[in-house]
Design a protein around this nucleic acid. Sequence first.
DNA 1: GAAGATTTTGGAAGATGTTGCAAGTTTTTG
DNA 2: CAAAAACTTGCAACATCTTCCAAAATCTTC
Lengths: 254, 254
Amino acid sequence: MQPEERQKRIEEYLLKAEFASLEELSDQVDASVSTVRRDLGALEEKGTVRRTHGGARILNPKSDEFTFSARETHQLGEKEAIGKACAALIGPNQTVILDAGTTVYYVARHLELKSPQIITNSLPVANLFSGANKAEVVVTGGVIYPRLGVLVGPLAVEAFGKIRADVAVMSAGGISLEGVSNSHGLLIDIQRAMIHAARKIIFCLDSTKFGRPSISQLCGLEVIDTIVTDAAAPAEMLKEFRKHQIEVIVAAGV
Amino acid sequence: MQPEERQKRIEEYLLKAEFASLEELSDQVDASVSTVRRDLGALEEKGTVRRTHGGARILNPKSDEFTFSARETHQLGEKEAIGKACAALIGPNQTVILDAGTTVYYVARHLELKSPQIITNSLPVANLFSGANKAEVVVTGGVIYPRLGVLVGPLAVEAFGKIRADVAVMSAGGISLEGVSNSHGLLIDIQRAMIHAARKIIFCLDSTKFGRPSISQLCGLEVIDTIVTDAAAPAEMLKEFRKHQIEVIVAAGV
DNA sequence: GAAGATTTTGGAAGATGTTGCAAGTTTTTG
DNA sequence: CAAAAACTTGCAACATCTTCCAAAATCTTC
């Protein structure tokens, strides 16, 4: 990537996050910390950013945009790790369905470089890619479900009915030996349509989701191809899932 | 391929992507990197592009109407005023189509309280309402047009084909006595569908848009019901528009 | 049309710029 | 004050730029 593009992306990231560590930025723009350091030097010269020990801060914060403010999520480390591990499963130029949900959002963040074709009904995910130019992103229609920024309703279901994808990256409210469940009834129809449209089904579930069934049953274990979770997931359950021919990936902690 | 055609394609690609590496462009126009380098040199001379190490960057982001770098929007005050004046035209509980474009975005900001039903293909507008739960917001599907955050393509056109609305709030690249025009060809189909779907058509145009025709013709004056603009709009043109039975509203300056 | 002049193209060699790493110094933290 | 983290500097490896040249395409002139 060219220095200018990298610097612009650093600026953009800082606009959203306000501060960021060098590590974070380095990860974000896929360059070494040294390079990020130099970039920040240039940006500071330009006056848009101020260096701090270990990171940088935006000088002229103007973030009223709707983005998952990268800070407000619990278990950030785990979700980052899951996101990275799951993104590694996606090949370049694949067609990927991305579900709504914070965990999947973190998968999306690691997907930019693969320039896949993406289909989503999540506004935060759409926003993530709206500035980037590499990936082609299809947004399903629908009514905005307040707070979550998910598009729901017949338009969304229809859109998934029309397409076929290589992979669906899903999240859910809970998983047990009986299957996967979710708390928002409205989402169930859409998630079923996603599952129907994709050849391979990956569920991203942080460890808190295990053995915690939610209100509405989404699907049985037999439709799942892969589960990506973090190190705190209960080992016996994972063993059970493996018995069901499910590939279980435990993301390395940070 | 002719040098001119090649250079035009480079420009077009950069318009979408903002940055591009030499490799990328060379691939895109099917010429060697050396040739692309020379082309970029010419384009830089012409002033549309800036060379960077390893690539190039678009310099003159065309038609600021749709580019949403909220940081650098010109005529912010005017757009705010237009937004306020236009929002006043909308009654409560109406169904409103909101076009993409910065001016319309400012209308949306003043619309929250009226809790209307909103239909839009603009991601920034959708984001604006995704937190609030007053309004019901329908987002059309579509492919994200890079950088602009507009949903384009058949999904979007179809969505507008299926619905009926009370009002459409539109923007455009330019207006003259011949009619309204826009710079992005892709958007024309969608805007036509919007016009078709709505009973009343309002155009929000800041004063810089007058007498400045853009590339593609969108529609004639006869479809316009109302124009909202700011105080700097040329008086004679407004008079002409009024003769065509168009209601012209001049928003009070800040 | 054909022969020669001109322009454009793609590539090669050396100059220049950028990147990531490591050693040594400074700052922060407990 | 000592350990840890972060910063600076210098450097080697790498990518990109400039300049040049020969081949190909295009234009002129007859």
